[in-house]
């Protein structure tokens, strides 16, 4: 292993050009964060529509509007991050189907169309059409949630992202922010039972995501030297260690504690705090995970 090679050879790079630095920065973080909210509210909205239809009736339009806003935010930052943003249409004119970027762009375009029709159906009281389209929207929202994991797995240079857990993390980010957003949206409108269900989903999503990150944090070192070098940035003394733990605390630990307190006391007044914490913390978590693999030298 390299940690034994370096002291033996005392090899030092004495002339090389600077590393390219962070190429995918905060705009890509915004992309992932906003997409989690945009699809997450659909998943949890669908759950509410099946289990607490009367409660969901009050949130129907709000859910679709929030989903549309955040999916458009996600698309906005995706396009803004392109170095040639006015060539975005090339994805539709010259699609390359092995690329998860292409597949995702096409599916999300269809989803946006379906969401607009759903909003129109709600405004014109066409409930049957709305319900049929909701199923289609959920089917489309699953690949839209997951395709970023596909992009990351295609990023062969970044071993940290090439994990099956990344796909699970994408889904957990959606259920975390989806439940949090609906708790905020339905704070004064949802029944206690519906709030409790959303709180449980929020708490379980946070706990599961935290466990997965801890798994990577502890066992990642044993996998490959590249992964070890990447994780060094969030481990003791690492440049991003504080930010990593801040994100984990705000996104996962605080919401889990608040949800437990809330359910035990059957008082749901602190759930908005847990929701805001989860939504804000997720941005930090995603950002750290996006940045650290870009810090190690590739050549």
């Amino acid at each position: 292993m390299v940690e034994h090679t370096i002291p033996a050879t005392n090899a030092v790079v004495t002339l090389d050009v600077a590393l390219p630095g962070i190429v995918w920065g905060w705009m890509i973080t915004m992309n992932m964060w906003a997409k989690s909210i945009g699809t997450g509210v659909l998943f949890l909205g669908y759950y509410l529509s099946k289990r607490y239809s009367e409660d969901f009736a009050k949130l129907k339009l709000g859910t679709i509007v929030i989903s549309l806003i955040f999916i458009h935010l996600f698309l906005l930052f995706t396009v803004l991050d392109l170095h040639q943003m006015f060539r975005f249409w090339h994805i539709f004119a010259y699609p390359h189907w092995t690329s998860a970027i292409t597949v995702g762009a096409w599916i999300v375009s269809v989803l946006v169309g379906v969401l607009f029709v759903m909003a129109w159906a709600k405004l014109t009281n066409k409930d049957e059409l709305f319900n049929k389209l909701f199923v289609i929207a959920i089917i489309l929202a699953i690949p839209v949630t997951l395709y970023t994991a596909g992009i990351m797995s295609e990023a062969t240079a970044r071993e940290l992202w090439q994990m099956p857990t990344e796909m699970v993390q994408m889904m957990l980010a959606a259920t975390l922010t989806g439940s949090a957003t609906l708790l905020l949206l339905g704070h004064g409108k949802l029944s206690d039972d519906a709030k409790r269900d959303l709180a449980v989903i929020l708490g379980l999503s946070a706990f599961s995501a935290f466990l997965l990150y801890m798994g990577e944090y502890i066992f990642g070192n044993m996998k490959a030297e590249e992964l070890q070098a990447t994780l060094a940035y969030i481990q003791s003394g690492g440049e991003y260690a504080s930010m990593f733990w801040l994100g984990q605390s705000i996104a996962y630990i605080v919401p889990v504690v608040l949800v437990l307190l809330s359910i035990n006391s059957k008082s749901y007044g602190i759930l908005p705090l847990a929701s805001v914490s989860a939504i804000a913390g997720l941005w930090i978590v995603k950002h750290v995970w996006l940045i650290i693999p870009q810090l190690i030298p590739m050549s």
């Binding site: 010259y94 295609e154 240079a157 870009q294």
Partner: peptide, 16 residues
Amino acid sequence: RCIGCAGCVMACPYGA
């Protein structure tokens, strides 16, 4: 044709 998404920069294991 390139749109400058930098996906290739992320994918290249050789930083090329």
